[in-house]
Amino acid sequence: MNNDKLVIGGYEFNSRFILGSGKYSMKLIEAAVKDAGAEIITLAVRRANTKEQESILDYIPEGITLLPNTSGARNAEEAVRIARLARELGCGKFVKIEIMRDSKYLLPDNQETIKATEILAKEGFVVMPYMYPDLNVARDLVNAGAASVMPLASPIGSNKGLATKEFIQILIDEIDLPIIVDAGIGRPSQACEAMEMGAAAIMANTALATAGNIQMMASAFKDAIEAGRKAYLSGLGRVLMRGASASDPLTGFLRD
């Protein structure tokens, strides 16, 4: 397990829990990062682009990788502009592409996401696109230079869990980049299930923000993600789902 690293764009991480930051109090972020054992934290550029009294940047412990996102972008062009602004603000070279032209469900626009990925990857960003789980789109994202693929489990903020489970499994099986399940994970058990399936990491925000005790929930997610990862590495995850074998082997008639 010690050598089990999450590798994104050549960068290694020990934690497989990516924390969102947009929905809860900043003073809790530092504690949540610690309890979650997170090494990557997302940051909405539109929120960071502020002169307000307290900036989220003041609350992020050292050694944590910032993952600025392009929320607010409605097309590839806007996402590219926001990513460049993030770089100017000193947020590093990682970027999570979020492109929505639907204010109700905030579902990602896959086509525009591919376009933005291609442009930003060429500019040297480590691009992590948020997407609706579609195999063809995932392949296009790989070709466009993405460093990971981030399919949604269910609508953002819904805490409904792995509604797109079968399709995420296809991405895990077919795509060679880390598949990071993003959006909709509401419980540690759901995070654990995604990890058992072979997801490379989990991203959560609302699940923590709406918990009674944010720190304790951060810790619960950490444990669940680690448990799921261990289960996956131990080879049990999918074998169990195939059902038990019959006591009389079907191939018993075969001679040596």
Binding site: Y24, S25, M26, A44, V45, R46, R47, N49, T50, E52, Q53, G72, A73, R74, E77, E78, R81, I82, L85
Partner: peptide, 20 residues
């Protein structure tokens, strides 16, 4: 207002907007 909202356990946000 900022202080009162924070005391209510809320995170006051002064900007969540970006012109693109």
């Amino acid at each position: 207002m900022y202080q009162d909202m924070a005391e209510e356990g809320l995170q006051p946000v002064l900007n969540d907007y970006i012109y693109v």
